[in-house]
Design a protein around this nucleic acid. Structure first.
Lengths: 155, 155
DNA sequence: TTATTTTAGGACATTTTTATCTTAAATAAG
DNA sequence: CTTATTTAAGATAAAAATGTCCTAAAATAA
């Protein structure tokens, strides 16, 4: 029935970001068991497109969120210590930028307490809760849930 | 720095939805003073593109969120009584569909309590608060804020 | 060194969203 | 009835996001 943005599925993050989070969480589960994984393995277990995910992992590698090695026996890995430090917010920031923190609910270029858009005050409240959630959820947390079978990546 | 979705500005709603909300709020302020407004007047005061906004208002007209009249002295208007009944959630629903209520944080086609994605539980909490906020904020509330000069539509 | 494996990254293609253009339909006034 | 004004809506265009393809670069091992 919705004529506009008919494919928009209420996503708070871009597809790139969704693929990135899924890939990182899967890589983390494997790193917890000492396994370095190749891109093919990643997308097989995260349900994301291979080439696109490769690009995204490249960016996340630059941001030091994941470690990559070329050549035979290469692949992606995340040090368990890092998993606890890296928060979902870091992935979102690396891919979508600081959008989550700054954007106006109605798309104004600037929107603040002193000159707010009509939904500003209510919007900021929700966004701050989202921000806090992202900043307090570590990759380790998510990886443990996935490894234990409590959560899934593909459907 | 963000290579992906570089134009994505952290929007929770589509552009179509943003334009729609701004247009409706402006029309409401004018209707409160008994003025029916033309599309040209609307976009001049909401900063949105004219033809696109016209399309969106067409959809909102069909959904009975705004009333339109063709011909001279025609334009858009909203009965003050309706303004208090219409919630932001109605506009979002008319344009973006039920996405806000159903979408999975990581884009899975299905994602529920029994088979959740890694961020499901935390994501649902935030989304429910967003939903409640949208469902309890009326067009009348927003129009009053704009009319009094407390909020703005263009920047 | 050479062959092989794997990520890196630029160029290209597709899909979705956003936006415009043009014509039709409706309405009111003369 | 004719004309002017205004929204309705289909066709089209542009822009942005998503996704693929291909070659280069890096690393390893024989």
């Amino acid at each position: 029935m919705s004529k506009f943005a008919p494919e928009k599925d209420g996503a708070m993050f871009s597809k790139a970001c969704e693929h990135g989070i899924k890939a990182i969480v899967y890589i983390a589960t494997q790193s917890l068991e000492g396994r370095r994984v190749k891109i093919g393995d990643v997308v097989e277990n995260s349900g994301s497109p291979e080439a696109f995910t490769g690009k995204i992992l490249g960016a996340l590698t630059k941001h030091n969120i994941v470690n990559s090695l070329t050549g035979p026996y290469g692949g992606f890995e995340i040090a368990p210590k890092r998993m606890k430090e890296i928060k979902v917010s870091d992935i979102v920031f690396a891919i979508d930028g600081d959008s989550v923190y700054k954007g106006c609910g109605l798309g104004l270029s600037e929107c603040s307490n002193t000159e707010p858009c009509p939904v500003h005050s209510k919007f900021v409240k929700i966004r701050n809760e989202l921000k806090k959630m992202l900043e307090t959820t570590s990759i380790y947390d998510l990886a443990v849930g996935l490894k234990s079978g409590k959560t899934i990546l593909i459907r």
